[in-house]
């Protein structure tokens, strides 16, 4: 059993930051009155001088992070993903990215995991906004092991990053020695009939469950954890497009300008491929528990299965 079973992702995030900060005194932490949500108090206890809580002022937080970066620090700045993307967009765009600084922005509670905080707090657009920033690295770990590995890698190179953080307990997917690399999708399960590319804890798990169901119907579905949205792992996308000729994408986000869009844009130029995009169909969020919201927005293994079957039918028709 993994060390991370039943451990909250935010605890793993905080522990990872502490370990990195112990080895690198340039790592600093910024919060905007959501430390109780992000769970980074242990970092502050350990490094009070390197922790800055600016209050409910996200734009200021990111501007301050940019300034810290220009003095050589490596700032990790946290808030809910809704505010990380929408509230700080210009500061993150100009002061951090355009200024070619090194700010690691983290948005917690992505998509439907905002739960009871409801529509105002439910980001279905953050990945889309972030994708439009040149050179930005964007990723969303799917479990505690990948979270730890990818945060570490993000801290090790110079350049801005945006990470989506699901802060709650999530099933452990990876073995601790899994070879995960930022920028490279990870093939969790190989398959020949269809390739399911998923991003984030909610959707990677649902995609795996869907592949099980499809398998029972004799359909061989590959499942790929596309933890890095940008830069897109084009090589992997192309190889599965050529192999399966049918691609399903799954994201806890709008289908507009997220993973499905990125893959479709790329393939339409090099290898037009039949696709289905599972995600939010141009709607706002709303309150509810996870089960309700997954069904409400079609983020279920059942929906992925149905979409895949429809896609395979279309493929059969078009390829005769």
């Amino acid at each position: 059993m993994s060390n991370y079973e039943n451990v909250e992702m935010r605890a793993v995030y905080t522990q990872t930051l502490i370990e990195l900060a112990e080895q690198n005194d340039r790592i600093v932490l910024l919060e905007a009155d959501l430390m109780r949500a992000t769970g980074t108090q242990p970092f502050m206890d350990k490094f009070p001088q390197r922790t800055f809580n600016v209050g409910v002022a996200e734009a200021n937080m990111v501007g301050v992070a940019a300034g810290l970066s220009s003095t050589g620090k490596i700032p990790f700045a946290n808030t809910f993903a809704s505010f990380a993307a929408r509230r700080t967009y210009d500061q993150f765009f100009i002061s951090a990215n355009y200024a070619r600084l090194n700010v690691k922005l983290v948005g917690s509670d992505p998509g439907i995991t905002a739960l009871y905080n409801g529509g105002t707090h439910m980001p279905f657009e953050d990945l889309g906004l972030m994708r439009n920033i040149p050179g930005l690295t964007i990723f969303e770990p799917s479990d505690a092991v990948s979270l730890k590995k990818l945060v570490k890698q993000a801290s090790e190179f110079y350049g801005c990053t945006y990470m989506r953080l699901n802060r709650r307990v999530s099933p452990v997917i990876y073995a601790e020695d899994a070879d995960l690399q930022l920028g490279k999708g990870y093939v969790l399960r190989d398959g020949d009939d269809v390739a399911i590319f998923a991003i984030g804890a909610v959707m990677v798990n649902e995609a795996l469950a869907a592949a099980d169901v499809l398998g029972m119907q004799g359909i061989s579905a590959a499942v790929i954890d596309m933890h890095t949205l940008k830069p897109l792992d084009k090589e992997l996308v192309l190889s599965y497009a050529q192999k399966t000729k049918a691609i399903v994408t799954c994201e806890n986000h709008q289908v507009i300008n997220g993973l499905g869009s990125a893959i479709a844009e790329y393939l339409s130029e090099v290898q037009p491929t039949l696709m289905r995009r599972v995600g939010v169909m141009d709607e706002f969020g709303e309150v509810g528990d996870l089960d309700y919201l997954m069904k409400r927005f079609g983020m279920t293994a059942e929906n992925i299965t149905q979409q895949t079957l429809a896609l395979l039918k279309q493929k059969e028709k078009e390829l005769v």
Partner: peptide, 13 residues
């Protein structure tokens, strides 16, 4: 309050 499909979400609408 806050149940799926409610008219009374956590934040005013």
């Amino acid at each position: 309050l806050n149940k799926g499909g409610t008219h009374l979400p956590s934040h005013c609408d």
